[in-house]
Amino acid sequence: MMEYVLLFLSTVIVNNFVLSRFLGLCIFFGVSKSLNASVGMGMAVASVMTVSSTLAWVVYNYVLVPFHLHFLTTVVFVILVACFVQLLEMIIRKFAPALYNLWGIYLLLIATNCIILGVPLINAESNYGFVKSVVHAFGSGVGFAFALILMASLRERLALADVPKPFQGLSIAFILAGLLALAFMGFSGMIPI
């Protein structure tokens, strides 16, 4: 049990996917302009990632490994994840229109995204077991949401600051993310893993 808690904490804060592995940057910089959108996006990513990684784990361990198709991992995962997100979008639109209005646009954005594809790949590469994979995927999603919400809060404050002209926009956002990553480095070494 302790092992899973440690893995969860390590993926959320120590090896945060955005700030230490550069995954999900497109969403991270695109969405963090608004705090509300960040909360919605964070929750959408966390839930989709958990389910799609579980699916990918099953396919990897019961189809790709037994038939020695490792070299197809990239192709299969991309198609699997993209199809899953599309399917999810259709189901939500049909059965929960209210939820679709809140989340629909985020689902479209994350259909082919580095972080959604990256987590199943890392799971497959590290040979994680089933529970470990799920915990890892959930932790990555929560970590992403955490970083996104922190960044959005910082950028709301930044809107009031007097930023020199060349630095406005993406440039200052990158430097801000760098400082955030610096702060997160304080956690490294806290969890031996």
Partner: peptide
């Protein structure tokens, strides 16, 4: 050492983007 850590990566890119913005201007 900071420059080869992820934090340095973010900051380098931020500064480069600012530099290119300035150049364009």
């Amino acid at each position: 050492l900071i420059m080869i850590l992820p934090a340095g990566g973010f900051i380098t890119i931020g500064l480069l983007i600012a530099f290119f913005n300035h150049l364009t201007e």
